[in-house]
């Protein structure tokens, strides 16, 4: 399966298992979504389970919270992560705090899916990685898969989770893995083992990292597209990097991260999002706090620049294997 098919399968499986699961968003119903993730669901489950919505992100999330208050499990699609901001009040002030403020009287088991990330010539408003806005919010879970197998297992886990989940989907990975070499043709998921996705129900833990590439010399903390870029940089530099795919950004699997850094003594954090106050800052701080005596070198961060995401300068902006590899070398030489 592609990541798109895997996500669709996750929705299909959960909708079939639980009548409380409803799916809606802009162009999500009849048309099946601008990225085809919800294709066929309305025909199969009917318009009351999968439907089109007005162009109102605050409305999508607001009604989803009300539905959750009733007892449904809404799965909302924000067409691009770049357009989630009008829903910020409902996400931050309402969904994230519903359980806490009502002492469990009401909860908000809402899943908010949104395609994110760059590398597709999406320019300023089709490329952003806003995860740090959400990892900062107590009460939210923020998740990002890097391959079809994880995408399905994590989305099922997100929908079944009783906490609100921000589910970020790197659209650059929708059709195939991407290591940052934009000059090469895209390899489809059908030719990759992680494109082998079971048809039925399975789920992954919603707070567990995976070791994407085992290694001994340094630890790379990455998620989404940058997992592939980091693995590529390891091959190209010959540095035996251990690439950890966080999968769950927050709450996160700190134990896996700390065990790796204590083993390697070096750490490089990689994300597409802008640098300052990005999620990488939290990762670096946690590693520094917990692994200070094991560190052989300063923690490196390879990120997007502190600029809006440009169009023409896509590959100067996107942290490709070249820039990531340079950081590996700096970490090894320190």
């Amino acid at each position: 399966m592609t990541m798109i098919q895997a996500l669709r399968s996750a929705l299909d499986v959960t909708m079939a298992r639980d009548a409380k699961v409803v799916v809606f968003g802009e162009d999500v119903g009849y048309f099946g979504g601008v990225f085809r993730v919800t294709e066929g669901l309305q025909a199969k489950y009917g318009k009351s389970r999968c439907f089109d919505a007005p162009i109102s992100e605050g409305g999508l999330v607001g009604v989803a919270i009300g539905m959750a208050g009733y007892g449904l499990r809404p799965v909302v699609e924000i067409q691009f992560a770049d357009y989630v901001y009008p829903a910020t009040d409902q996400i931050v002030s309402e969904a994230a705090r519903m359980r806490y403020r009502s002492a469990g009287d009401f909860t908000a088991p809402v899943t908010i899916r949104m395609p994110c990330g760059g590398g597709i010539y999406g320019g300023q408003t089709h490329s952003q990685s806003p995860e740090a806005f959400f990892t900062h919010v107590c009460g939210l879970r923020t998740v990002m898969p890097s391959n079809p197998y994880d995408a399905k297992g994590l989305l099922i886990a997100a929908i079944e989770c009783n906490d609100p989940v921000i589910f970020l989907e790197p659209k650059r990975l929708y059709n195939g893995p991407f290591d940052g070499h934009h000059e090469r043709p895209v390899v489809p998921w059908s030719r990759h083992p992680l494109g082998m996705v079971p048809e039925g129900w399975y789920k992954l833990p919603i707070d567990a990292a995976s070791i994407f590439r085992p290694g001994k010399e340094l630890t790379v903390l990455a998620y989404g597209t940058m997992v592939w870029v980091a693995a590529c940089a390891a091959e190209e530099t010959g540095i035996d990097a251990e690439v950890i795919d966080l999968r769950a950004l927050w709450p996160m699997d700190l134990e896996t991260v700390l065990a790796s850094v204590r083993k390697t003594g070096r750490c490089v954090v990689v994300h597409e999002a802008t640098r300052t106050s990005g999620f990488g800052a939290e990762l670096a701080a946690l590693v520094q706090e917990h692994c200070f005596h094991h560190l052989e070198a300063p923690i490196e961060r390879v990120t997007g620049w502190d600029t809006p995401y440009p169009h023409a300068q896509e590959w100067d902006y996107f942290p490709g294997p070249g820039r990531v590899g340079e950081a590996f070398k700096r970490a090894m030489e320190a």
């Binding site: 409803v22 605050g58 409305g59 607001g62 009604v63 989803a64 919270i65 009300g66 539905m67 208050g69 009733y70 007892g71 449904l72 809404p74 409902q90 309402e94």
Partner: peptide, 10 residues
């Protein structure tokens, strides 16, 4: 808005 969503759920 949440009230509308609750009604929709019903």
């Amino acid at each position: 808005t949440q009230a509308v969503g609750w009604g929709m759920a019903s």
